[in-house]
């Protein structure tokens, strides 16, 4: 079957790719574009390891077809750090040891960034509710929640004890 030609913007850069209709956006990112930061966990939209932003909205890239990305702006974990400078969320995940195996981490970071972009001062409940679509099977959630709240405080310019 003929491949589809798709034009998108990924992390601010214009990107074109060819894909089979059966390839998900996650397949395209990982297998065609070598953007392997987004992970495949469950492949059915439960775990959130493949989270990316499509036109600013947090979605599971395993449940978006590559062809659906035509004309869309996509943000992935690869666009989060600026060169060698980590995003405050990434830095706080390190400081709080909010990861162990790391498979869920890119999804959590993308999801948390989407939250802080829309709500710079979330409550703990709001953070937990927002991150309900991201599963972690080893670190546990407390360190992740603390890292997000600490990063939010730092990004607001508050010192945090």
């Amino acid at each position: 079957m003929a491949k589809h030609h798709v034009t998108t913007t990924i992390n601010g850069e214009s990107v074109e790719f060819l894909c089979d209709t059966r390839q998900t956006l996650l397949d395209v990112l990982r297998d065609e574009l070598e953007l392997t930061g987004s992970k495949e966990g469950c492949a059915s939209g439960d775990c959130g390891a493949c989270s990316v932003l499509v036109d600013g909205r947090l979605v599971c890239s395993c449940l978006v077809l590559g062809v659906e990305a035509e004309g869309k702006s996509i943000e992935t974990i690869e666009g989060m750090a600026k060169g060698d400078k980590l995003h405050p969320l990434q830095q706080k995940f390190l400081e709080h040891a909010a990861l162990q195996c790391g498979i869920c981490t890119p999804g959590f970071l993308v999801a948390a960034k989407a939250l802080l972009d829309s709500n710079p001062n979330p409550t703990e409940t709001e953070v937990r509710y927002w991150l309900a679509g991201n599963l972690c099977r080893c670190t546990g959630y407390d360190k992740i929640i603390r890292a997000v709240l600490d990063a939010a405080a730092e990004m607001r310019g508050e010192t945090h004890g």
Partner: peptide, 9 residues
């Protein structure tokens, strides 16, 4: 309904 990722799609 579901989670944030589901509600966005």
């Amino acid at each position: 309904i579901g989670d944030r990722q589901v509600r966005n799609r």
